[in-house]
């Protein structure tokens, strides 16, 4: 029943054996071994499993892996620059105290990235709306909003590679 498919994750092509009902979250975590993508509910309710597909945030626990062939998948591991530097969003999360337990963090950061890619200068309201599908139980969101705001500033003044 398994078939070999090609998934492009963080600009690298992985050949993985999957069955038609395998979910992207499980394939990324268990078969590809990129465990930065988290599962908090497996039901599309928490956002912890968010990855980017062609730049758009997608809940990988609701997405069939097989449907992602030929698409560009970005996971949290794909955000760090070649030279190991943190992406400005990652840096802002660290500096602003937007991370506590860190379990929501990968999904939250990828959602933030999609948001800032569309609009590097979002209003507070736009940020809140943008991350409203991602639950964080630790931080109370305030520092996350601040981090996204600050990252947006950095990106629009300095740009990112």
């Amino acid at each position: 029943m398994k078939q070999l498919i090609e998934l492009t994750i963080n600009n690298r092509v992985y050949e993985v054996p999957v069955s038609p009902k395998d979910l992207l979250a499980d394939v990324i975590r268990d078969k590809v071994g990129l465990t930065g993508t988290k599962k908090g509910c497996g039901q599309g309710d928490c956002g912890a499993c968010t990855v980017l597909i062609d730049g758009n945030p997608v809940l990988s626990c609701l997405t069939l892996a097989i449907a992602c062939q030929g698409r560009k998948i970005t996971t949290i591991e794909g955000l760090v620059a070649e030279d190991g530097q943190l992406h400005p969003i990652q840096q802002a999360y660290v500096d602003h105290g937007a991370v506590q337990c860190g379990f929501c963090t990968p999904g939250m950061i990828l959602t933030s990235k999609a948001l800032l890619d569309r609009n590097p200068k979002p209003s507070e309201e736009e940020i809140k709306r943008g991350i409203s599908g991602n639950i964080c139980r630790c931080t109370g969101y305030k520092k996350i909003v601040e981090a996204i705001f600050a990252a947006g500033e950095t990106i629009s003044t300095e740009g990112v590679k």
């Binding site: 975590r29 465990t35 930065g36 949290i76 591991e77 943190l86 999360y93 991370v99 963090t105």
Partner: peptide
Amino acid sequence: SVPRKDGPLKVKGEAIYTGD
């Protein structure tokens, strides 16, 4: 107000939780 020790690992998705 220093950033937490495990902050960088967590934002990179490299912190290891039991399920990982």
